[in-house]
Computed example of a mutant assay.
Amino acid sequence: MTATTAHARAAARPCDRETSLTRSLLGYGVIAGPVYVGVSLTEALTRDGFDLTRHAWSLLANGDLGWIHITNLVLAGAMTIAFAVGLRRAHGRGWAPRLLAVYGLSLLAAGAFRADPVQGFPRGVPGGETTWHGVAHLASGGVGFTCLVAACFVLARRFARRGRAAWAWSSRATGALFAAGFLSMVSAAGAAWSNLAFTAAVVLGWAWIGALAAHAYRNA
């Protein structure tokens, strides 16, 4: 089927209320990543004392302007959950929507439980102290990232069964690279290369979610 034929068939399908709702939910998956990454990068480049080579984005939740990143996390989490609901409506029950919903919930939890200050950010705030909300933040991130990686491989298997080799390969690659970036951050915390690798993995993860949402939207 050519792209033109697929587009013509999609345009010919009746856009009833249920379809419109499903597409609206899927649309949140398209915008969640650009919003989260765009706001986070803007914060990282403008917040005093923040260093992209040393500090994870989650540290932006600290300080007088921390509410911006907390709001960013909550919005990204809510949009991811909405996308997961849309994916379930579009493609039926399965593990992928559930795993993505848990990832969205983990973002909400990461916003609720602030990361502990470390490595001199925010400027003037002593780091190194471990708090209960810092531990909760790390735990929510670990659960969420694991679910995102699992969703990549679950969908890779589904795409492979349907003969969508490019999607299967890209989903596996995203899952593997995200897992590698997360493990590098955990094992070499504080190293510039590991922090940059994890940041790149986060951007890649959001890009995959956005592409998946756009694909599901076109086929809803």
Results as ranks from 00 to 15, higher is better:
His69Thr: 11
Asn72Ile: 03
Asn72Trp: 06
Asn72Gly: 05
Asn72Phe: 04
Val74Asp: 12
Leu75Trp: 09
Leu75Gly: 12
Leu75Ala: 09
Ala76Leu: 10
Ala76His: 07
Ala76Cys: 09
Thr80Gly: 09
Ile81Pro: 10
Ala82Tyr: 08
Phe83Cys: 12
Phe83Glu: 06
Phe83Arg: 08
Ala84Gln: 11
Ala84Val: 13
Val85Gln: 12
Leu87Glu: 05
Leu87Met: 12
His91Gln: 14
Gly92Leu: 14
Gly92Glu: 10
Arg93Thr: 15
Arg93Gln: 03
Arg93Ala: 10
Trp95Tyr: 06
Ala96Cys: 11
Pro97Phe: 12
Arg98Tyr: 07
Leu99Ile: 02
Val102Ile: 08
Gly104Ser: 04
Leu105Gly: 07
Leu105Ser: 11
Ser106Phe: 10
Leu107Tyr: 09
Leu107Ala: 10
Leu108Met: 14
Ala110Cys: 04
Ala110Pro: 03
Ala112Glu: 05
Arg114Glu: 05
Ala115Val: 15
Ala115Asn: 08
Asp116His: 05
Asp116Ser: 06
Asp116Cys: 05
Pro117Asn: 06
Pro117Ser: 04
Pro117Asp: 03
Gly120Tyr: 08
Pro126His: 03
Gly128Ala: 04
Glu129Thr: 09
Thr130Cys: 00
Thr131Leu: 03
Thr131Asp: 01
Trp132Lys: 06
Trp132His: 15
Trp132Ile: 14
His133Gly: 03
Val135Phe: 09
Leu138Phe: 05
Ala139Arg: 14
Gly142Glu: 11
Val143Lys: 01
Val143Thr: 00
Gly144Asp: 01
Phe145Gly: 00
Thr146Val: 02
Val149Ser: 00
Val149Trp: 00
Val149Ala: 01
Ala150Met: 03
Ala151Lys: 05
Ala151Met: 11
Phe153Arg: 00
Val154Glu: 07
Leu155Met: 14
Ala156Pro: 02
Ala156Lys: 02
Arg157Ala: 08
Arg157Ile: 04
Arg158His: 14
Phe159His: 07
Ala160Lys: 10
Arg161Asp: 11
Arg161Gln: 11
Trp167Arg: 08
Trp169Asp: 15
Ser170Ala: 04
Arg172Tyr: 10
Gly175Ser: 02
Ala176Phe: 08
Leu177Ala: 04
Phe178Lys: 00
Phe178Ser: 00
Gly181Gln: 01
Gly181Arg: 00
Phe182Cys: 01
Leu183Lys: 10
Leu183Thr: 09
Val186Ala: 13
Val186Arg: 13
Ala188Arg: 13
Ala189Lys: 04
Ala189Met: 07
